[in-house]
């Protein structure tokens, strides 16, 4: 511990030691993240199925909330990572950020699909329909389409093509900045989905404490899972790019 925080001559001050702390922590992710994610996910499943009380009006189907709401938050988090990494691709011209952006986009699309699927299953018994053109549903669907398009563009281009990475980064930035405008327009267009009930002041809380605790456990579980998946995907993308580069070098060598 002391070796990490101790300032040295070439540490570059606070930021440098913080960077090294993060790097040190990242080295340990392979040992730390899988068991932690496993425990958190088990806690979430047990919490959602056993601990949480049955909702009086909606019944058992309401338990979908413990996966629906965290999935939405996980998707937003992943897309935030895509946005930041895309900015870094343009700024630092480092293809490693592109690998992280691609990995995070894949995870984000996965969780958006999970959110839409659980939402549809929940909506059928409660609203009487799988799908409605409500503002939130519409904007979530568009979010899914935007990042699916990003992944499509990225997979059609060569993964070593730095120019294509820059263009995709531009698209990811435009897509992220488009989300508030989409939300405003569809809110004006149609507005069935309940307003957020989790992020409220303590005095104004609508969920009973037992449900809220399970929901928080679900959020922690899914956020850790998201982190783990993003790390895995990004490393896969990076190793894949390296393999492609090696193959290209080999082909060139054999050609000579």
């Amino acid at each position: 511990m002391t070796t990490i925080t101790r300032p040295t001559a070439n540490s570059g001050g606070m930021l440098g030691s913080l960077g090294r702390l993060i790097a040190k922590l990242y080295e340990w992710h392979w040992y730390v993240l899988p068991p932690v994610v496993g425990i958190a996910m088990m806690a979430m499943i047990v919490g959602a199925v056993v601990v949480a009380p049955r909702e009086a009006v909606e019944g058992q189907v309401q338990r979908l909330m413990y996966i629906h709401v965290p999935s939405a938050i996980a998707a937003y988090m992943a897309f935030g990572v895509v946005f930041v990494c895309s900015l870094m691709v343009l700024w630092k011209r480092d293809m490693r950020y592109d690998a992280v952006a691609r990995g995070a986009a894949t995870v984000g699309v996965l969780f958006t699909a999970l959110m839409l699927a659980t939402g549809a299953l929940w909506g059928r018994p409660i609203w009487g329909t799988f799908w409605a053109w409500d503002a939130r549903l519409t904007s979530s669907l568009l979010l899914f389409l935007l990042y699916a398009a990003y992944l499509l563009a990225r997979s059609l281009a060569d993964e070593l093509d730095e120019q294509a990475a820059r263009y995709s980064a531009v698209y990811a930035i435009v897509a992220y900045l488009d989300v508030p405008i989409i939300q405003m327009s569809v809110r004006w267009w149609r507005t069935l989905h309940p307003q957020p009930i989790v992020m409220r002041l303590p005095g104004d809380q609508q969920l009973p404490t037992s449900m809220l605790l399970v929901l928080y456990a679900g959020m922690i579980g899914i956020l850790l899972l998201t982190t783990w998946l993003i790390v895995l995907r990004s490393e896969t993308e990076r190793i894949g790019a390296r393999a492609t580069a090696l193959r290209a070098t080999l082909d060139r060598a054999e050609g000579n």
């Binding site: 935007l146 499509l152 563009a153 897509a175 405003m184 569809v186």
Partner: peptide
């Protein structure tokens, strides 16, 4: 690719 990329972005413009 172009319509797949652009049309979701243009949904607010289409509605408005």
């Amino acid at each position: 690719l172009l319509p797949v990329l652009s049309l979701p972005l243009l949904v607010p413009l289409l509605i408005a």
